[in-house]
Amino acid sequence: MKKFEVKDLINIGIYTALHFLCIFLVAMLGFIPQAFIFAGIIEGFLGAIPIMIFLTKVKKFGMITIMGLLLGLITLLMGRPWPCVVIGLAAGLITDLIWMKADFSKIKFGPVCCGTMMLWTAGMGLPLFFGYRDSYLANLEEGYGKEYVEVIRSLTPDWMFIGMIIIAVVGGFLGGLFAKRILRKHFAKANLVE
């Protein structure tokens, strides 16, 4: 494994910030239960653009993994249960392996990478599912009344967790396609990427 230079680390930090901001702004929308399906798509779409530019700067194995770890850590800072760090790390690692297979340069793998990178957002939705679910909803019910909880409960059966991940990944993939077009149209011309 080649050693990281400071430039690489700075690139990781900057693009993680941009990516996270894109996602966070949209994720606020997800608080309206009916909107959160669309939120997944838009999140992926917006978030993919910084990822795509970031990919063109990655020339070493491990950079995307660190990005995933950072995203997991931010999710933890936002008060989600701890497995979100592992999810973030895994998302980064998967993306890293795919991008390595693409020799860190074949741009046609880009959209796939954008898609898999979005897996980390699964950590954001964690409180609504699995063992966390019942007590989370029961506690919402105490505060907000039965009707609201019923709406959420009906919208989020356990398989919805998988559905949510798929939605985000598809969003990421579509965003990746769009970002690829932007990359070709603007950045290749200005020689900012190879």
Partner: peptide
């Protein structure tokens, strides 16, 4: 490798 990206972010 974690501190620097975090600080930059």
């Amino acid at each position: 490798v974690i501190v620097i990206p975090f600080a930059v972010m």
